[in-house]
Design a protein around this nucleic acid. Structure first.
Length: 836
RNA sequence: GCCCUCGUGGUGAAAUGGUAGACACAAAGGACUUAAAAUCCUUGCCCGCAAGGGAGUGCCAGUUCGAGUCUGGCCGAGGGCACCA
């Protein structure tokens, strides 16, 4: 009996799958399954996170394929983005070449995992063949009014002359230039995602195969709140529109606060002290926490507004740094007694505080220490008095609408999606600027608008804008000269429709083929990390709706029917005496007493706790890596990588191989009906469990049952079971292992069935008749405590069970001095004697 | 600050309200071996040689014949949002 050469079988079967593509040869067209894992960014090498993501997906794809589904399991590359630009700059390369090289390496690495991916469908977002269609979609959306240009504030790096993403701003400085980042107003392109706010929120209900957590995160992100707008009059010609969700507290309003970006500002922009105040307002830290905890400051305008419900009462108007212009109307009324921010502000500027809500725990009190935001009854509010908050809200809105000074209004936290990036390595925005200032889309016949080659990435500012000729063009309709948009698209745009492109990836003239689309979409199971719970998934949902708006034949609303978010891959962290991070490799080479072992954390280069998948595959083979990755923790939880764990997985694979050899060498045994039956029942039960557990995504438990089934087979080698049944059992278990360890399974199966290859392997059939065991184990309890076990025939009656239970020595002993008051009997499960 | 999730052996974990710790890692002891590796077996907190018994799923209460599982409160860890009016 030889040891299995895992390297050999890895290569053998990987080549076979690539050539034969039999996993995708399915005849049953009516059962489709679109299995998709989030495509990777080609950063250079695959990491363990990829391995986990794609191992989970592959289990599902193979499992579904074996169950007769026509499976779509493609892979592509999210290949535009900053790292390519940075790497290119550092190494004096073309981003395209750098990206291509990485794709080649990573593709080979993914293939070495034995994934059942149809590489004929491979796409890469930086290919003209891909982004051409994206530009077409952009024009579609533009024509439907889903794209707009707006002025917004951006993080501006004055040295690099570029816009920075929030995460590129570190301590208020540019990550590369280290220059103090400025707030600059810039005209940028936006997708009008907020148009769908309500729909995107409501349709979360349709996503019953999504994790609740992700739906909740999206719900909070969209942030619907119901409130109302109210006009506050300054004088006959001027009024201020405010937004509030607490109109019930209007009698507690003691000031108005406006955003420093509010249109009212214009009247103050000549005043020195206002300019200074505005400057101070924008000088808060960059972290969100810093913003939230920043001191509340205000600028007194000297103006007063009339209180809409209290005669002759006026309240002062302030500009305040804590009011956001892009939420509500950019103005609020301050009710210090019932809003902590307003309370802080009022305390600082000595403004009146009027309590209008009272509860048991929060009686009316002249000296409030903090705002009260809880439930209660309305006080000090004329016609609202004694109402609860909900009723008061309703009544005051009615009153406001009757007086025509405002109306009920729903506000969303979700803002439009800014898609302009002042970068080179992205999809060019297919718009041009005409001489008269008009902005128009390029003619569709001119697509794709290709990125120029040989750009200078080292000069400051946007490389496309700096290019000597690229932006110069002509407007096809009139022939007049025009200038190209030099911004490129956010890479989230690329990934917002790639799953659609996979349905017809080679189609030349259109983004997708409708027939292929309606067959494959939606994605049945999408798998990826939680880090994309909001943006990527929300943007994709938006795209689906935008495409639907453009083409009424499209019936699919939600792109991803099922979503699964896998956990991260963690590893222990190590530090030496100096407190420097050590890699697992370094750590194994030095004196262990000098190493401080830290808790397991997500693998990251900065903590040096990464393990390279490629080297692991070389040592243990693809199956062992896949097996361990899935065996140790539920797939949605973090997993702790351990080399002992993979080594054990490898040992197990050898054990299965050894078992396979022993079965092939097994001498036929005269079978006994009873032993054979028990054998078949057990094998069938394992298959049944494994099937259900895969369906439930409990892959770790499925694997635990494979372990048990293999041990069961080992222990039964000498039992009176015919060779034919034994062989059959092993064939079925190997099939059940196939999604996890495809190389081992194919190798074992080809030996067991004496064939070199297979046309198609089907999932083992579960014999329903064998699932019901004749014997059951019943727990015997006295007063709820377990005192023994009995084995009885299935469906034994209460009396029989009681008689049998009372024959157990331990039960007799324990019942001796007690009187049984009653019995609790649950068929096939439990008998509980209650004594007193 | 608001919202959500999770607390089970040395570790990762399992358990439709019904045998807590399946399965695996690590550790200790043992078997085989001249020895080691490999492999296999046993143990797992307390009492007991054992049979068996006791405690036991973050803490405190409750519902139930019976709670890791359900309910309420507390403590702890992780995640999301964060001046959103």
């Amino acid at each position: 009996m030889n040891k299995l050469n895992v390297k050999e079988i890895d290569e053998k079967w990987q080549n076979f799958w690539l050539k034969e593509k039999i996993i995708f040869k399915n005849t049953k067209k009516n059962k489709k399954f679109y299995c998709l894992e989030m495509f990777p960014y080609p950063s250079g090498k695959i990491h363990m996170g990829h391995v986990r993501n794609y191992a989970i997906g592959d289990v599902l794809a193979r499992y579904k394929s074996m169950n007769g589904f026509n499976v779509l399991h493609p892979m592509g590359w999210d290949s535009f983005g900053m790292p390519a630009e940075n790497a290119a700059r550092e190494n004096n390369l073309d981003p395209k070449d750098w990206t291509k090289k990485n794709i080649t390496t990573m593709k080979k690495q993914l293939q070495s995992l034995g994934l059942s991916i149809d590489w004929d469908l491979e796409i890469s977002t930086c290919d003209e063949e891909y982004y051409k269609h994206q530009q077409e979609l952009f024009i579609d959306f533009y024509e439907k009014g889903l794209i707009l240009k707006k002025e917004t504030y951006v993080n501006w790096d004055p040295v690099d002359k570029t816009v920075l993403a929030n995460e590129q701003v570190i301590d208020g400085k540019g990550w590369r230039s280290n220059a103090v980042v400025e707030r600059k107003k810039l005209s940028q392109w936006f997708f009008n995602i907020s148009k769908f706010s309500n729909e995107l929120l409501d349709d979360l209900k349709l996503l019953d195969e999504w994790p609740e957590k992700v739906k909740l995160m999206q719900k909070n992100w969209i942030g619907k709140s119901i409130g109302c707008q109210i006009d506050f009059e300054i004088d006959k010609n001027n009024k201020i529109k405010i937004f509030t969700t607490r109109p019930d507290t209007i009698f507690g309003a003691t000031f108005l606060a406006l955003s420093v970006d509010h249109p009212m500002c214009k009247e103050f922009e000549k005043q020195k002290d206002f300019i200074e105040f505005k400057k101070r307002s924008s000088q808060v830290g960059t972290t969100e926490e810093a913003i939230a905890n920043a001191e509340k400051i205000g600028f007194k305008t000297g103006l007063n507004a009339k209180h809409p419900f209290i005669k002759n009462k006026t309240i002062p108007i302030y500009f305040a740094n804590f009011i956001l212009m892009d939420y509500g109307t950019g103005a609020i009324f301050g009710c210090p007694a019932h809003d902590q921010r307003d309370f802080d502000f009022a305390t600082k500027y000595n403004l009146e505080i009027i309590q209008v809500v009272q509860s048991e725990e929060f009686r009316e009190n002249k000296k409030l220490k903090k705002a009260y935001t809880g439930d209660g009854k309305i006080i000090n509010s004329e016609f609202l008095n004694n109402l609860n908050i909900e009723d008061a809200k309703e009544k005051i809105i009615q009153e406001i609408e009757r007086k025509k000074i405002g109306k009920k209004k729903i506000s969303f936290r979700l803002k439009d999606w800014g898609i302009s990036r002042q970068r080179y390595w992205g999809c060019p925005i297919p718009m041009i600027y005409l001489k008269d200032g008009k902005v128009v889309p390029v003619d569709r016949s001119e697509l794709p608008i290709k990125l120029p080659e040989n750009v200078d990435l080292n000069s400051k500012g946007n490389p496309l804008a700096n290019h000597p000729t690229w932006k110069k063009t002509k407007y096809k309709k009139t022939g007049e000269s025009a200038t190209r948009e030099t911004d490129t698209l956010d890479t989230f745009v690329d990934s917002s429709w790639y799953f659609i492109r996979f349905c017809s990836p080679r189609l030349k003239d259109k983004p997708f083929d409708k027939k292929a689309f309606s067959y494959w979409m939606p994605v049945d199971q999408y798998i990826g990390g939680v880090e994309h719970a909001i943006l990527h998934l929300l943007y994709s949902r938006f795209f689906m709706r935008a495409i639907k708006l453009n083409d009424t034949d499209i019936k699919v609303k939600e792109p991803f029917k099922g979503l699964f978010t896998q956990g991260m891959v963690c590893h222990e962290t190590y530090k030496n005496e100096k407190g420097e991070w050590l890699s697992p490799e370094q750590m194994s080479k030095i004196d262990k007493s000098k190493v401080v072992v830290g808790p397991a954390e997500a693998m990251s280069k900065s903590k040096k706790n990464v393990v390279d998948p490629e080297s692991m595959i070389k040592i243990y083979g693809a199956d062992a890596i896949r097996w361990f990755m899935l065996s140790d923790s539920p797939p949605d939880r973090d997993i702790q990588w351990s080399n002992e764990g993979v080594a054990a997985a490898h040992k197990f694979i050898q054990r299965v191989w050894a078992l396979n050899c022993r079965i092939l060498e097994r001498k036929n045994i005269l079978s006994s009906e009873e032993e054979e039956k028990t054998f078949l029942v057990n094998i069938n039960k394992y298959l049944f469990k494994i099937t259900n557990l895969i369906e439930k995504f409990s892959l770790n438990v499925a694997i635990a049952n494979v372990y048990e089934s293999i041990r069961f087979l080992e222990e039964n080698l000498a039992k009176s079971v015919s060779n034919q049944h034994f062989l059959n059992a092993q064939i079925n278990i190997m099939k059940a292992m196939m999604p996890f360890t495809p190389h081992l399974s194919w190798e074992c199966l080809s030996r067991l069935e004496g064939k070199d290859f297979y046309t198609k392997i089907e999932w083992p059939k579960i014999e329903k008749t064998l699932l019901i065991d004749d014997k059951v184990t019943i727990v015997v309890q006295i007063d709820g405590k377990k005192r023994g076990l009995i084995s009885t025939n299935r469906d034994s009656l209460e009396k029989e069970v009681i008689d049998a239970a009372k024959k157990i020595e331990n039960i007799t002993k324990n019942l001796k001095d007690k009187k049984i008051m009653k019995n609790i009997f649950v068929k096939n499960k439990i008998i509980n004697f209650i004594t007193k």
